[in-house]
Structure formats: structure tokens, C-alpha cells
């Protein structure tokens, strides 16, 4: 087996709030190859962002805590490396594009300085003039004239701010980008542009990416692999082809697909998945989706394992598990 860029095994993350303990991620596992794009799909509260923050080592201090599992990035177990090494990895090996460009740039620094900062941090020996040139290149690369680098974030529109955020994320040509709903806060017309840009740059720099999104259409367009998350677990994992063409799907994924409006059908109402995502502060023993599942049976009281239904398709559901059939 070839070396993976990222390998997450049985990751569990808890948040300790004053009121209760929240189980945000519960035994998440998936792999990512070099240069590969993974779509991380799931509804709000499924633990997608938490998973990304764990990879960055940026869980809120004193609140978020990895209680179990391992994250191996480019051969290093990042949950065990010292903070100083983690800082070297951030921005250089792995970087992140955040959800809201309006608030993810520092309002009192010029955009050029903010791009320069990440370059200076990871190219300690290089001269400033040389790095300034890279800043210019990065700005042109994301489609902003380099002569605007002395302007401040408030002088840019939302879409342009996100371009700057992308420039910061890509400045050091990382091996992995975590894009956490990079288009959610943007205008619909800008969304396609932004995804196109991210995809194009990712191809050009041969960077792997985890794209967190609610939009299955986006996943089909840009990703090679899909991981569907539900209540802190990966319930379905596979190649885009396998999942989008297959009739064999986790009941939750099927629900997601059914919730997409179809142009060729004259439906009055969209299909929804009944119920709500379970309370994350309650530990669930069996299948986490069972409460909302149409196919739930007695055995769903026990936690299902990942079942391989095709060479590149795995589902966490008793329906497909021959061993527990009964």
C-alpha cells in the first residue's frame, strides 16, 4: 500500500463546556492520498469543522480535546508532535480556508502583509524583497491586481477577501488544504467562481484537499472521494463514482440525495429526512442514525461497523453487513 498523505483513525473529539460535555466527533476514520480531493459532507453539527480543526491542531484551547484516535499527516502523528513542530506544519504542510472571509482577515493589517506573514514564517532564510515578489505572484494567481496589496481588508468585497484567504492558504504550497465551506458566506454567483479557482489552483499546485460542504453537486464536480458524516461519524466513504452511481447507499446518504431538488420532476415539496441530528451531549450506544432511519431494526441497537460493499465504497450500516444479518 502506498503511503497516505493523511490518515485519520478512530478520532474522537469532545468539547467541554460549562454546561455539559459535547461529543463532537466519535470514531472518525478516513484516508487521503497525495493530490486527492475529498468531499466531507454532512449537516450542521456533524463534526466536519471539528475534524478539520483537529487536523490543524487548532481545537479551541481548554475546550476542545482529542480523547482518542490518531491523525497521521505525511508520516507524522500530529497529535503527538510538540507544539513547535505543529507550528511548522501549519501553513506549510497543511493550511485552511475558513468559512467566513469577512471575519477571517485581520482588519488592521494590509492584505499584502497578511500574505507575507505566512511566507516569512516558513521561509526564515529568505530576503523580504524575494518574498514580496511571491506575494505579488500569489495575488495575481487568485485574480487580484498586485498593486492592491497595500489595501486593508475592508476595502475589498467578500469574494475578493476570500481570494486573499485562498492566497494565504496556498502561499507556501502546502500538501493539504482544508477548505471549510469556503463558499457558504458568499453570493451564489461568486460561489462557482471561487470553487473553480480553488479547484484550478489545487490542480496546478498538485495539492490534496478536503472540501467541507453541504452541497453534493459541488462534491460531484470537484472531488474524487466522498466521506459522508453523521453525528460525528463517517457513515459512508468511497469514490465519487461509486457513491453517485450506486443504488447501494447508507439510508442517510440516500436521504441527502433525495433532498436535492430535481429539475425533471414536478415535485411540490422537497423530500426531507425526518427528525433531527441527535443531541451531541448524549452518548449513543447503537447506530447513531437509527432514530431517523426508515429501515431501523432491532440490531441497530448495536453499533454498526464499516462494511465494504464495493472495492472503493464503504458503508456503516447493518443493512449491508452479512455478518449481523438476522
Amino acid at each position: 500500500m502506498s503511503k497516505k498523505l493523511l490518515s485519520i483513525r478512530d478520532l474522537s473529539v469532545d468539547y467541554n463546556t460549562e454546561i455539559s460535555r459535547v461529543y463532537a466527533v466519535n470514531g472518525l476514520s478516513f484516508d487521503l492520498d497525495y493530490g486527492e480531493t475529498l468531499g466531507l459532507v454532512g449537516e450542521t453539527g456533524a463534526g466536519k469543522t471539528t475534524a478539520c480543526l483537529s487536523i490543524m491542531g487548532l481545537l479551541p484551547e481548554g475546550i476542545g480535546e482529542v480523547v482518542e484516535g490518531s491523525i497521521t499527516l505525511d508520516g507524522e502523528d500530529i497529535l503527538r508532535v510538540p507544539d513547535s513542530r505543529l507550528r511548522e506544519l501549519r501553513g506549510r504542510t497543511v493550511s485552511m480556508i475558513f468559512q467566513d472571509p469577512m471575519s477571517s482577515l485581520n482588519p488592521v493589517l494590509t492584505v499584502g502583509d497578511q500574505i507575507l506573514e505566512v511566507l516569512q514564517e516558513h521561509n526564515k532564510g529568505k530576503k523580504k524583497e524575494e518574498l514580496e515578489k511571491t506575494v505579488d505572484n500569489m495575488m495575481e494567481l487568485v485574480g487580484i491586481p498586485a498593486n492592491r496589496k497595500n489595501e486593508y481588508p475592508h476595502e475589498f468585497s467578500g469574494g475578493m477577501k476570500q481570494r486573499i484567504v485562498i492566497a494565504i492558504a496556498l502561499a507556501c504550497e502546502p500538501k493539504l488544504i482544508l477548505a471549510d465551506e469556503p463558499t457558504t458566506a458568499l453570493d451564489v454567483t461568486i460561489q462557482a467562481q471561487m470553487l473553480g479557482l480553488i479547484h484550478e489552483l489545487q490542480q496546478r499546485l498538485n495539492t490534496a484537499m478536503i472540501l467541507v460542504t453541504h452541497d453534493l453537486g459541488v462534491v460531484a464536480q470537484t472531488c474524487e472521494k466522498v466521506a459522508v458524516m453523521y453525528a460525528g461519524q463517517c457513515v459512508e466513504y468511497g469514490s465519487v463514482e461509486a457513491i453517485f452511481d450506486s443504488q447501494t447507499l447508507h439510508p442517510y446518504t440516500r436521504g441527502l440525495f433525495n433532498a436535492i431538488p430535481k429539475l425533471d420532476e414536478d415535485a411540490q415539496r422537497l423530500e426531507t429526512i425526518e427528525g433531527m441530528i441527535p443531541d451531541p451531549s448524549v452518548k449513543i450506544e447503537g447506530c447513531r442514525f437509527a432514530q431517523r432511519c426508515k429501515f431501523a431494526t432491532q440490531r441497530c441497537g448495536q453499533a454498526p461497523g464499516m462494511v465494504r460493499v464495493a472495492p472503493d465504497h464503504m458503508i456503516r450500516c447493518h443493512l449491508f453487513d452479512k455478518r449481523t444479518e438476522g
Binding site: 490543524m56 487548532l58 479551541p60 475558513f98 471575519s103 482577515l105 514564517e121 484567504v165
Partner: peptide
């Protein structure tokens, strides 16, 4: 202290 741009800065790996 918990603004998004602080997280961005941390994600850059700055000290």
C-alpha cells in the same frame, strides 16, 4: 481573543 482572524493567524503557523 477568539476572533476568526486569530484562528487564521494560528493556521499560518505564526508564533
Amino acid at each position: 481573543i477568539r476572533q476568526d482572524y486569530v484562528t487564521t493567524a494560528k493556521a499560518k503557523g505564526v508564533s
